[in-house]
Every structure is written in structure tokens, then in C-alpha cells.
Write a protein that binds this DNA or RNA. Structure first.
Length: 816
RNA sequence: GCCGAAGUGGCGGAAUUGGCAGACGCGGCGCACUCAAAAUGCGUUGGGGUAGCCCCCCAUGAGGGUUCGAGUCCCUCCUUCGGCACCA
């Protein structure tokens, strides 16, 4: 018999499938569509085990659905812009474009080796002008719809990457990519108004029932909706007012001071006298922290401005302070201080000897604020609150807000934690922002017919004061699209998360050169039925993509507003307990595994070793185990097809048939309902074990036709996991066409029927006996049989049970 | 601190609706094949008692509860991981 030689059969079938375009996705036809997508990779150089796991999972889903009769779209592409290309350029003197395209070439080859069933005709790369041209067009659409603006604000600056970062890209005060401590700078940058979609982005999470709870919670936390009120405080002796946002309007009568952020525009005019001015200057100097992390750890300090505001509720003057803990970016940059009912305010008040006034009490009786040891933040009744005394505090929130509204001193407001998305990057290898600055006409968008604004190839990538593109004269100098006069281009490029916010749409029409999206094809394939990727994108990519989809829907480009129906987040691949990484030196290269065991083993192992949502610890012994299993399948089929089995004329065996159909059932539900590829493979292993046991019988007791049928079904079940071997075995078994074009086997319910069942007999919940009985015995019959058991008789010792619980076909529990 | 997930043999993990805990694989042990080994096939493998194939006890992070019956449901606690964390 031929040996199992993956190195021979894998390249052979790969070529065959490519030639036949076996995995091309076709629109129309009678088959229902199914869009299976894995997050596209950054072309870093080579695939790592995380990729292998992600793409093997997706490939099983795609192949399974094809066999179940769906027309499947399963595309791949490259998230090809980004900083590593520039770093490689600096380090090795290779152009970012060349480096990127070389990597793509290598990784594409690796994917093909893995036997991933992509429709390669739809491949795309975000750094391709044919792609980013449309990224620019979508940017212009956002611009026209008023969703793009430039603003000066305090931004996150990564000194390692020499660029600004979006809020979402700061992790624990460090850069998400290089983990340098993020600094705060004050710069003018381009933003996308994602906050305008905060409400639908939050609300529609409810509809994403097939997303992991965890991811929905993370997004909801990130958006951070809070209901409250804006309250206007007059400033004593001046015409300006100070507006605060609060979630506790019910505590308005307990406000004893105000605090504004150090950067608040009114601070300078509020400061009274040289002493206060010096104190405020000192506070700003000492306490505007450089990094985000320092800012979080900083002690709460403040200093009075010398000015007073008027509490609109009771007309009392209250001091206005400047405090380092008030954020200019959230709410209005000013807060009201209610020390009796907010722990932070309480600590601040105690530190600076500010009065504490109780306005909410659990029993409705007034208390002495000075006697409190901590803030009272629970519910209660209002006290010392004029006309609102005695009200329940939740009710008082509404009443006080309406009261303020009537008097023009405030209004109800919803505040979000979510900030607008900063998309400017001071880097070269990204999509140029298609805007020009004209002295006469101002900021002008590049007309669509002039797109793409191409990245110049010749560029100096050395980090410097100005970004690389700003130093390319021929790029910067241009003419104004409106007046034709001299103008200069925007030299920032876009955050690469912009590129990846719409790529899943483009797959529907990857090479359409007339439009970004062909409405007919996009609305046919989308939304994505199953999206698979790492949980590290729970906020960033998935939130941005949802935002883009909603905007494009509002613009009439799409007929749906959520891009991903079902999301699956896979676990990490670890070695020695931690994620594989170059810096830790704990890498297993998929290339080595394929070379040694073949792609089928690599795929099947990563799917078998752990449930897909959990972390997977790499195990060389486990890989060997899978390799042995595949060889075991190979021998089973090989020995059968080569042996003379004309004597195997026994009738079909009911037990083997039941095993076969139970396996079909388990594999089917494990893939489609539970996503548990590990148990699907375990079920196939059990079938193989059963077939070996059957084959150990004398030949005359075997049924040739049943073995033949079983082996064919086994091969089909194995096809999504080990596509190369399955194809080879299918051919050995004399199957017609490709195994990957076969229909998924159906379960015969009749075959599943058991005629004998094991019923467990328990006494007081402990197993005392097991009996074999005919399936479907009635409760009474079961009870009689159980009582007749000699072991039961022994334990009962003449007593009769107080109670008998019977679950037909399963259990009899006697209670004594 | 707040929110969420997880904790099962020597190891990775099964147990789908509350009904035989440990499927499947790894590792270990044994047998067959072999001159021998490897490979392969078959058997065995939670702990303890007793002793060798029959029986008993214990066992799903800890403790309590609900139930005829709990890995699964409820409460308290411990540990690990993830998210959020001056958000007014």
C-alpha cells in the first residue's frame, strides 16, 4: 500500500483546484448565499500560528456551507498600509511598497499551501491605488455629509511612531503598537464624527444577538452613555455663564463649589488677583501631566480662582476652583461639586476645607454634612432642597430638570464617553487625505474624477519635524481644483483602520473600476454571515466598521446597517503559557509544521487541540497525535481499496450504521451550531475507531457495501478539516468529481433509533446497577425491572422505596 | 474599585435540556507482530481502601443551599484571565 505522503498529494490537488477555480463565488443562481469572512491579515512577512488558526476555522465554515448547498463567498486580502513597512524601510533600505508586496507574495503562497478555499479572483490590498482610490472617495462622502472636521485639541502623541493616535489606540497610557508611553500634545488634526452615531452604535448592539456578549459589553462600555443634565450657573458680577454636565441634578441644592479644567477657556478671565493667578499658573505648570498614565495617577489638586458662581437653585454664591481632575474633553470641562453625595467631591472638599451639605437622606431627615465620613451616594429623599424636599431622589432628577428648563437654566442631556475618531497620521505609508489648501478658496476636497491622490514613491522616511509627505515638494505643490491658483496638499495620511472599515464590502466587487461599491452585488452578498477574528479588535476595528456601515447606509449606498451578522472571536495560540511573539522567542513557524507533517495535520491540529474560543497551548506531541490519526484514516481506506473483499457479503450491521449516522449528526451540529471543531474531530475519530473494530471481524461477517458507504461518508466529513487527504481518499474510493463538491451527508433518523438502552438504577442518587432493556419501556415496566435487580434487592434488604423517580430510557432512582 | 469570563485526571479537553463525570487525543503501563527495535494493531489507565477483574468509599477551586438527583441552578468566598477605571 502507498504511504501517506502529504508532500506529494498536497501540491497536486492545490494545482488541480486552482485550475478548476473550484472556490469561485458566483452571484445569482438558485443557491442561497453565504458570506464567510476572516479578518484580513497585515502582511508582516509570514503567517503565524494565530493566522493558521483563524483561517483554518473560517475554511471549515466556508467548506461546510458549500457542501450544504450554499453559494459561498470566502475572500481574502491584505491590510497592507501601516507603520512596520516604514520601519523595515529605515532598517533595511527597502521601499515600503516593495517590502509590502514581497510579503504579500510570500504569505499568499503560504495560504495556498494551507489549502484555504478562497476565491482568489477577489483578492485586494489596501495599499493598491485601485483600492485606496475608493477609500479616498468614501472619505469625500463623509466630508460632504459633514462628518469630517479639523480641530485643534489635546491629542495622543506616540513618540515611538512619530504620529498621533486615536483614543481607541491608547492602551494603559501606551501606544497599541509599540507600547511607548503616549504623550499629550496640542495639535490641529482631522476627525471623523463617530460621536454623531453614538446612539445607534450603542442601541443596535442589542440586535447583535450572535455576537459574543463580551464584545457587546466592551463596546457599550466604550461608548459609555450617561443620562443627565446641563446646568447653567451665572458668574457673579459678569455676563458669562458656566455650564456643567451632571448625572445628579437631584443634588443641585448641595453644590458648594465648582471646578473647571485647567484648559477651560474661561479660566484666565475668572482668575482674580495676582496671587490666584500665580497659583493657577503653578497648577497648570505642575499638573498638566505629560502622559496619559501620569494623568490618571495624579493626585487631585486644585486652587481657587477668586471668582464666584451663583447656584441657580438657591441663589447662593459658590467659589469657582481650577482642578487637575476635571477633563476638558468630557462634558463641558466644568463640574459642580457636591461633596455630600460624590466621593471624589467629598475628598476634594475635605482636603480644601470646603463646606459639605447633605441634600439627600435615607429617611428624609436632615443630617450634618460635616459629620459624614464618606459621601452618601445611595438613593433617598431630598432635604434642604426648597420646594423639592421630601421627593424621592430619582423623581427629583426629572422635576429639577424640568424646573430648570422652564427658567432657561438647564436642560436634559445625554453624554457619551466616546470621542470623535482622530484619523490624521503623520506618516508616509497610508492613504493620502484628499484635500488641498488654497489661500483664496480655503480647504477644498479633491474632485472625485481626480482620484486617486497617489502616494509619491520617492520620499525621505527619516523621522523629523515634518511628516515625510510634507517634505516631498512635488506632492505638496498643486493647483486649487476650484480656482486653479497655487495650492498645497494635505500631507497627513489616514489611520489604517479607515482602510479596514470597509474592505468587507469591497470584496463583493473587488475590481469594479467605476465605483467603490456596486449596490447590486454588495446588497446581494452582504451582510457578512459569519465573521471570525481575534478579540483584540473588539473595540477598534469592529466599532469603526459598524460606524462606516451606518454612514454608507444613510448615504443610500447600502440596504443594511450592521455589517456582521454573527461574530466569532477565537483565542490566542500560546507556547509556554504566553502568546507566541518574536521578542519572547517562543515561535512555532507554520512553515516548519507544513514541511514536516503537511497542511492537513497543521489545520486539523489547531482545530482539535482546544475549543476555538479558548487559548490554545501548542503541543508538539499533540501534532504527532493528529498526524497519526490521519495516517490511521489513510490506512483504513488504503487497505480496503487494495484488498480483495469479494467474500465480505454479510448483511448491513445496524450498530455500525447507527455509529455512522450519529457521527454525521454530531459533526453537523458541532460545526454549524456550536462552532466546536474539537468535538467534531473527536466524533470522526470515534467513527474511525469503530470502523477499525468492525474490520477486525472475519471477512465473511463484514458487508462490503456498508464499508464502502461508511468510508465515503467518512471522507466527506473529513473534507472541511483535511481537504487534501479527503480529496485523495475520495479518488481512491472511486468517487466522482471533487470531494469538495459533494453534498453534506444527511442523517437518517431511523438509523439513530436504539433498540437496546442502558438504564442506570440509583438508590438515593447513587449508581447501584445498570440494566440493558429494550428502548421505550414504560415507567411501570422500568420500575418493575429495576426492583427485580438482585443488586437492588440486596441493598433494599426487604425495605420498599419511599419514592421512585423514573426517566424513561435513562434512569430509575429509588429513594429509601 | 466596578463589570464580565473561567477553574474538571499526569496534560489538552468531553459531558448539547439538572440524569452513568472524565468522550476524543497526548502521556504512562501491558500484550501481539518482530531475531530485535521502530512503526502498527489490540488492551489498560481519576484517587484511595480491599486486594489483583466484585465490592466499598472519595472526587469537577473552597464552603453552604435547592433537588429524588448538581460539573451544570442559587448564595458566600478563593484563584486566574480579560475589559473599564478621575467620565462628573
Amino acid at each position: 500500500m502507498r504511504e501517506y505522503q502529504p508532500a506529494e498529494i498536497e501540491p497536486k490537488w492545490r494545482q488541480q483546484w486552482e485550475k478548476q477555480k473550484l472556490y469561485r463565488a458566483a452571484e445569482g443562481g438558485s443557491r442561497p448565499k453565504y458570506y464567510c469572512l476572516e479578518m484580513f491579515p497585515y502582511p508582516s512577512g509570514r503567517l503565524h500560528m494565530g493566522h493558521v488558526r483563524n483561517y483554518s476555522l473560517g475554511d471549515v465554515v466556508a467548506r461546510f456551507h458549500r457542501m450544504r448547498g450554499y453559494s459561498v463567498l470566502h475572500p481574502i486580502g491584505w491590510d497592507a498600509f501601516g507603520l512596520p513597512a516604514e520601519n523595515a524601510a529605515l532598517k533595511r533600505g527597502i521601499h515600503p511598497a516593495d517590502w509590502t508586496w514581497q510579503n504579500i507574495g510570500y504569505m499568499r503562497e503560504q495560504m495556498k499551501k494551507l489549502g484555504l478555499s478562497y476565491d482568489w479572483d477577489r483578492e485586494l490590498a489596501t495599499c493598491d491605488p485601485e483600492y485606496y482610490r475608493w477609500t479616498q472617495a468614501i472619505f469625500l462622502l463623509f466630508y460632504e455629509r459633514g462628518l469630517v472636521y479639523k480641530a485643534a485639541s489635546r491629542v495622543n502623541w506616540c513618540p515611538g511612531c512619530h504620529t498621533v493616535l486615536a483614543n481607541e489606540q491608547v492602551e494603559d497610557g501606551t501606544c497599541w503598537r509599540c507600547h511607548s508611553p503616549v504623550e499629550q500634545r496640542y495639535l490641529k488634526q482631522w476627525f471623523l464624527k463617530i460621536t454623531e452615531y453614538a446612539e445607534p452604535l450603542l442601541k443596535d448592539l442589542e440586535r447583535l444577538q450572535r455576537w459574543p456578549e463580551r464584545v457587546r459589553t466592551m463596546q457599550a462600555n466604550w461608548i459609555g452613555r450617561s443620562e443627565g443634565a446641563e446646568i447653567v450657573f451665572p458668574i457673579q458680577g459678569r455676563s458669562e455663564t458656566l455650564t456643567v454636565f451632571t448625572t445628579r441634578p437631584d443634588t443641585l441644592f448641595g453644590v458648594t463649589y465648582m471646578v473647571v479644567a485647567p484648559e477651560h477657556p474661561l479660566v484666565d478671565s475668572l482668575v482674580k488677583g495676582p496671587e490666584a493667578a500665580a497659583a493657577v499658573a503653578a497648577l497648570r505648570q505642575a499638573q498638566v501631566p505629560v502622559t496619559e498614565r501620569e494623568r490618571e495617577l495624579a493626585e487631585k489638586i486644585g486652587t481657587p480662582t477668586g471668582s464666584y458662581a451663583i447656584n441657580p437653585a438657591n441663589g447662593r454664591p459658590i467659589p469657582i476652583w481650577v482642578g487637575n481632575y476635571v477633563l476638558m474633553e468630557y462634558g463641558t470641562g466644568a463640574v459642580m461639586g457636591v461633596p455630600a453625595h460624590d466621593q471624589r467631591d467629598f475628598e476634594f472638599a475635605r482636603k480644601y476645607h470646603l463646606p459639605v451639605e447633605v441634600v439627600i437622606s435615607p429617611d428624609g431627615r436632615p443630617r450634618d454634612g460635616e459629620a459624614l465620613s464618606e459621601a452618601y451616594v445611595e438613593a433617598g429623599q431630598l432635604v434642604n432642597s426648597g420646594p423639592f424636599d421630601g421627593l424621592d431622589n430619582e423623581e427629583a432628577k426629572q422635576k429639577i430638570v424640568s424646573w430648570l428648563e422652564e427658567r432657561g437654566q438647564g436642560k436634559a442631556r445625554v453624554q457619551y464617553r466616546l470621542r470623535d475618531w482622530l484619523i490624521s497620521r503623520q506618516r508616509y505609508w497610508g492613504v493620502p487625505i484628499p484635500l488641498v489648501y488654497c489661500d483664496r478658496c480655503g480647504t477644498i476636497p479633491v474632485p472625485r474624477e481626480q482620484l486617486p491622490v497617489l502616494l509619491p514613491r520617492e520620499v525621505d522616511l527619516q523621522p523629523g519635524e515634518r511628516s515625510p509627505l510634507a517634505r516631498v515638494e512635488s506632492f505638496v505643490h498643486t493647483t486649487c481644483p476650484r480656482c486653479g491658483g497655487p495650492a498645497s496638499r494635505e500631507t497627513d495620511t489616514m489611520d489604517t483602520f479607515v482602510d479596514s472599515s470597509w474592505y468587507y464590502l469591497r470584496y463583493a466587487c473587488s475590481h469594479d473600476d467605476r465605483q467603490a461599491l456596486d449596490p447590486q452585488r454588495v446588497n446581494y452578498w452582504l451582510p457578512v454571515d459569519q465573521y471570525i477574528g481575534g478579540v483584540e479588535h473588539a473595540i477598534l476595528h469592529l466599532l469603526y466598521s459598524r460606524f462606516f456601515t451606518k454612514v454608507l447606509r444613510d448615504a443610500g449606498w447600502l440596504q443594511f446597517d450592521e455589517p456582521f451578522q454573527s461574530l466569532f472571536t477565537q483565542g490566542m495560540v500560546t507556547l509556554g503559557g504566553s502568546a507566541m511573539s518574536k521578542s519572547k522567542g517562543n515561535i512555532v513557524d507554520p512553515e516548519d509544521i507544513i514541511a514536516r507533517y503537511g497542511a492537513d495535520t497543521a489545520r486539523t491540529f489547531v482545530l482539535f487541540a482546544a475549543p476555538p474560543d479558548r487559548d490554545l497551548e501548542w503541543s508538539e506531541a499533540g501534532v504527532e497525535g493528529i498526524y497519526r490519526f490521519l495516517q490511521r484514516v489513510w490506512r483504513l481506506v488504503g487497505e480496503w481499496t487494495e484488498a480483495d473483499h469479494s467474500a465480505a457479503g454479510a448483511p448491513s450491521d445496524r450498530q455500525l450504521r447507527r455509529l455512522l449516522h450519529r457521527t454525521i449528526q454530531r459533526v453537523t451540529t458541532d460545526i454549524s451550531e456550536r462552532f466546536n471543531m474539537n468535538t467534531a474531530i473527536a466524533a470522526i475519530m470515534e467513527l474511525v475507531n469503530g470502523l477499525y473494530a468492525y474490520r477486525a471481524r472475519p471477512l465473511v461477517e463484514q458487508s462490503a457495501s456498508q464499508i464502502d458507504e461508511s468510508l465515503r461518508t467518512l471522507t466527506v466529513l473529513l473534507a472541511p478539516f483535511a481537504p487534501f487527504m479527503a480529496e485523495e481518499l475520495w479518488q481512491m474510493l472511486g468517487g466522482q468529481g471533487s470531494v469538495h463538491e459533494q453534498s453534506w451527508p444527511l442523517v437518517d433518523p431511523e438509523a439513530l433509533q436504539e433498540d437496546q438502552v442502558t438504564v442506570v438504577i440509583q438508590i438515593n442518587g447513587k449508581v447501584r446497577d445498570r440494566i440493558q432493556v429494550a428502548a421505550g419501556l414504560s415507567r411501570e415496566e422500568l420500575q418493575q425491572t429495576a426492583l427485580a435487580s438482585p443488586k437492588v434487592q440486596g441493598v433494599l434488604d426487604g425495605r420498599s422505596p419511599r419514592q421512585v423517580v423514573v426517566v424513561p430510557n435513562k434512569i430509575v432512582n429509588l429513594v429509601i
